[in-house]
Write a protein that binds this DNA or RNA. Sequence first.
DNA 1: CGGTAATCGTTGTATCTACAACAGTTGTTG
DNA 2: CAACAACTGTTGTAGATACAACGATTACCG
Lengths: 167, 167
Amino acid sequence: MTTTAPHRDPDLDPTPVDDEEIAAWRAFLRAHSLMLRQIGEDLEAAGLPPLAWYDVLWALYEAPARRLQNYELADAVLLSRSGLSRLVDRIADAGLVRRTDCPEDRRGVHIELTDEGAAMLRQMWPVYARGIAEHFAPALGRHSCTVRQAFESVAASLGRGEHGEPC
Amino acid sequence: MTTTAPHRDPDLDPTPVDDEEIAAWRAFLRAHSLMLRQIGEDLEAAGLPPLAWYDVLWALYEAPARRLQNYELADAVLLSRSGLSRLVDRIADAGLVRRTDCPEDRRGVHIELTDEGAAMLRQMWPVYARGIAEHFAPALGRHSCTVRQAFESVAASLGRGEHGEPC
DNA sequence: CGGTAATCGTTGTATCTACAACAGTTGTTG
DNA sequence: CAACAACTGTTGTAGATACAACGATTACCG
């Protein structure tokens, strides 16, 4: 994806979305694209793996025994199963993750964070966090809670949306 | 890209980003992914082209003579030039766009919206707008202006960031 | 002017992702 | 318990994007 911006025009608009909301949507798309690009560049400049790897490593890190099944992981990082299967191939080749047989369900596979993977997580986070701290957090200012609630509400409206406490 | 969520952990955190900001970032990523997926599915269900095409068509629609050069368009939709070149190939094959020689700079190419392209824009917008109106706008509620300003500020912090009036 | 540097768009190549199909396994129901 | 359905992960294939390299054109300077 991708994508930057739609907009409203009197000529082609039969739907009730006001200009302010569309402007917010455009800004949202643009900010997303620029932020991910920036963080991706920062990681590459530091000789670290791409951002997608971070999500996988983190999801495993916070999981009970530092492992998840393929389908759980795919759901956590919002990727198709085939997509995740191949992503795990690459991460496993780098030794950051390990596949293990799943005793209780012989169809499944446990994907398990290795010590090297945990170490990589520690290396990546500062770079990642710096991007957020420099470009995202200051822009939100004191409204970070409002923004969080708004987007948790978006997620809730769409699929499952992990509500946090009301701030 | 992709990606869902980072998070903070006492073990691995030397950077000053507080939990609330990280929660906002996670929600932001998740909302983006879910929104784009939803709108993409809606468009496909309606037998319409993907969302990326909309951005191109719209950028041309709002341009002076309904045409832009390749590099301008690439910038507008935040795509690499090679990426846009191939995207335009596909859209042109569908007849929604036309390549024209650029008189004032013979290196360049004008990419021009056709009448069919404008018609397609009119077909796509209602579907697109419905996604925004149903899932995005309600979640923002009366804070859409705050959100807009915050993300315009993000864009400004990163690259160029088309500021709108202060609401 | 002449030559070098910069810019524009396209193409070869590699990477990454999704969809469809598949084999293996589990669950369910008659 | 047998048959059928549902689910899990992988693989073939196609699509989309980025990077690097290229020819063509323009801009900048000496």
